[in-house]
Nucleic acid binder design. Structure first.
Length: 372
DNA sequence: CAGGCGTGGTC
DNA sequence: TGACCAAGCCT
């Protein structure tokens, strides 16, 4: 089925680029989602421009993260830090506390670094071109293009996962990702209009998020590009884009040390770089690749005492491995001096930058009966 | 430059 | 229910 798609067919589609853009923008004008960081058509008509800070913040949060997940985080950040300067003036730890749960914590560290750079070197004003934006920490090709297009209507080509999927289907490209990425980018670039490039970019992403979805496509009668779409004619849309299979995730195992004293728990900060960098943690042993708990070596406990192993496991999946933790627990009779870390009040743990895996440990200890 | 880097939703 | 996937960037 794929073989019948000719080069000439793709070329013809590229030549209809203006028609494609017009159809998509018409659809967008009637179907654009209302999002907290998005400037309404009415406001735009009144000459209002999107706020670069809001667009930047939203785009960073949206990296590899769904709109539904981002919205409450975005609202919280804007309420607490209404400007890039306010964010730059915050403490990094406060930013990490409010980012906790959103994942990819290097984004938060780069967000903060970027805010301080804009404050200190750019008089608090974001650059206007994608080329300049690209130089800022945490801003790559996608984010630079998206901000420049949305805020300043630069005719930048915005390529994210949605755009790749839409292009692969529109042109019926069956070469698997990630090798096909440059080809999909070239196609996206060929279609990028000079008229309303910001709306166009958001329209393609909305199309990918609501119609041209990974599964359960909603082409029929709803997709503005259905009549153009080569894979729709060929009946191959649902199997595109193809991807190389990823290696199965290995499992790592370890022990978490729950040390409690007088309604406080021992927490410490993780190293600035790497996994969960800069976030707080319940201290633990190394997380060791392992096939089973059988014969798994006992932990090197931080202090010699009567640690009790709790029933059950805390499990979590990261990008590239599964984790299983056993929790061993120690109730201290008297305060001891910690070489590192802090005693965190159990009723104020929301003030600490605990990533989700660490919140799971807290839940496991405090509601073990639910862990059946 | 291939691999590290979170999490929640979906099927 | 485990694998796949999402508005990517950094080293």
């Amino acid at each position: 089925m794929f073989g019948v798609v000719t080069v000439a067919e793709k070329d013809r589609l590229v030549e209809q680029g203006e028609d494609l853009a017009d159809s998509l923008l018409d659809w967008y004008d009637g179907n654009a989602r209302t999002l907290p960081w998005r400037t309404s058509p009415q406001d735009k008509a009144d000459g209002l421009k999107p706020d670069p800070y809001e667009v930047w913040l939203s785009e960073i949060m949206l990296q590899q993260t769904t709109v539904a997940t981002v919205i409450p985080y975005f609202e919280k950040f804007i309420a607490k830090w209404p400007t890039v300067t306010a964010l730059a003036d915050a403490e990094l730890d406060d930013v990490l506390v409010d980012w906790a749960g959103l994942g990819y914590y290097a984004r938060a560290r780069n967000l903060y670094k970027c805010a301080q750079f804009v404050r200190d070197e750019l008089d608090g004003v974001f650059p206007e071109t994608s080329e300049e934006l690209r130089k800022l920490p945490g801003i790559g090709p996608y984010t630079a293009a998206a901000i420049a297009a949305i805020v300043h209507d630069e005719a930048a080509t915005v390529v994210d996962g949605n755009v790749e999927r839409v292009m692969a289907r529109l042109f019926n490209v069956d070469t698997p990702l990630p090798d096909v990425r440059p080809e999909l980018r070239d196609l996206a670039e060929a279609l990028t209009p000079s008229h309303r490039p910001g709306d166009y970019a958001q329209a393609v992403m909305d199309l990918g998020a609501t119609i041209c979805t990974p599964k359960a496509l909603k082409c029929d009668g709803r997709c503005p590009w259905q009549d153009f779409c080569i894979s729709a004619k060929a009946g191959t849309s649902e199997e595109l884009p193809k991807r190389l299979k990823k290696a199965a995730k290995p499992t790592r195992r370890g022990f978490a040390f729950w040390g409690e004293y007088n309604n406080h728990v021992w927490l410490r900060r993780r190293p600035e770089e790497g996994l969960l960098g800069g976030m707080m943690e319940v201290p633990s042993s190394d997380w060791v690749p392992s096939n089973s708990w059988d014969n798994f070596p006992p932990p090197q406990v931080p202090i010699i005492a009567n640690w009790r192993e709790m029933p059950g496991l805390v499990t979590h999946t990261f990008t590239h491995f599964h984790l299983e933790l056993k929790v061993i627990r120690l109730e201290l009779e008297e305060m001891i001096n910690l070489q590192e870390g802090v005693w965190a009040p159990l009723d104020r743990l929301d003030e600490f930058a605990l990533p989700t895996v660490m919140k799971k440990i807290v839940e496991h200890v405090r509601a073990p009966v639910l862990d059946l």
